[in-house]
Write a protein that binds this DNA or RNA. Structure first.
Length: 307
DNA sequence: AAACAAACCAACCGCGGCTCT
DNA sequence: TAGAGCCGCGGTTGGTTTGTT
């Protein structure tokens, strides 16, 4: 069947999102929750297609998103997860709950791919992983056509094991991460704390500026802290209280945005843990189980201090 | 200071899978 | 069971910023 693209309707706006649109979208989602995206443009009056709304929410407005530089730890995780899972960015993102698939994809395409291609040794390593991992491309699979299936499977097992091991190392905070593929120094990435807050060095128009979103969220958070003091904490995805500030400030009048202070107090008010999506926990458990049960014996031999 | 190139990233597009009727 | 519609994902594009000459 041929389905007309959802965004080809007349009067559907494209391009960068405005603060007003963001507020409308966030407000609606606070009230109704994410999902049923088709209803969002209809119910909010936004001149955006449902896809665009979902994308804006998941990649930018959703609470708990970490922006800015990737840490070395994250970088390593992405490399190894990519080796294991291939370009399944959503799956990879599920192990980096604070990063969006789009962010990871962009980072891979703009940074990591180049890095891995830079040093021959790393290329060899990554080629090994990629050419024998389950996620390898058909072209790379063909390049091994002269290798017998048995050999290839043994190689595959070995590489999966090695990838697991590497991933284990990356996931384990107690084990020092050796400077491997990253050419960027720790100091360069040590700004992870500040990067969590989305410090973008570049000054961008609104749509690519975290500042404005930060201001918005900060405003909501600030208000919610006041109103929810007795509740003692912010629910991870619960912005119900934050909506109040919207009602107070109003979405009309761009000047309202000027009144929002910086993001700092939002940072202090909402810790990364608090905004971490809940469902990831079970994924972690399964993943860790898979990771550790197979590699655990060897890994624990090598890292007796773990656990 | 201007022109050009490279890097970056938000957003779009189209496909596949799932759900509902 | 088949068709229609929606959602999510991955690939790609295009605008903006930054760096270099």
């Amino acid at each position: 069947m041929v389905r007309p693209p959802c965004c080809h309707k007349e009067g559907v706006k494209k391009g960068p999102w405005t603060p007003e649109e963001d507020i409308i979208l966030v407000t609606y989602i606070q009230e109704h929750g994410p999902g049923n995206w088709r209803a969002v443009p209809a119910n909010t009056g936004l001149l955006r297609c449902s896809k665009s709304c979902r994308l804006r929410w998941t990649n930018y407005l959703r609470p708990g998103i970490k922006r800015g530089n990737f840490t070395q730890h994250e970088e390593k995780m992405i490399i190894h997860l990519q080796a294991l899972l291939g370009n399944r960015w959503a799956a990879i993102a599920s192990y980096l709950p604070q990063r969006t698939d789009n962010d990871i994809k962009n980072y891979w395409n703009t940074h990591l791919k180049k890095k891995l291609n830079k040093t021959p040794r790393e290329v060899d390593q990554s080629d090994d992983q990629f050419s024998t991992s389950p996620s390898m491309s058909s072209s790379s699979a063909n390049s091994n056509s002269n290798v017998s299936r048995g050999q290839w499977e043994r190689h595959l097992q070995t590489d999966i094991h090695m990838a697991k091991k590497a991933l284990f190392e990356a996931l384990s905070p107690s084990i020092p991460i050796a400077a491997t593929t990253s050419s960027s120094s720790e100091s360069k990435h040590s700004a992870s704390v500040s990067s969590f807050l989305g410090t973008q060095e570049r000054s961008n128009p609104y749509a690519s500026s975290t500042d404005n979103i930060a201001k918005l969220l900060k405003g909501w958070a600030k208000n919610s802290i006041k109103t929810q003091d007795s509740k003692n904490q912010l629910a991870s995805n619960d912005f119900d209280s934050k909506i109040e500030i919207k009602k107070g400030v109003g979405i009309e009048g761009g000047g309202a945005f000027q009144s929002f202070p910086g993001f700092e107090s939002f940072r202090s008010a909402v810790s990364p843990d608090e905004v971490k999506p809940k469902p990831k926990q079970s994924q972690w458990s399964l993943f860790e189980k898979w990771l550790f049960e197979d590699s655990g014996d060897i890994l624990l031999d090598e890292n007796p201090n773990f656990i």
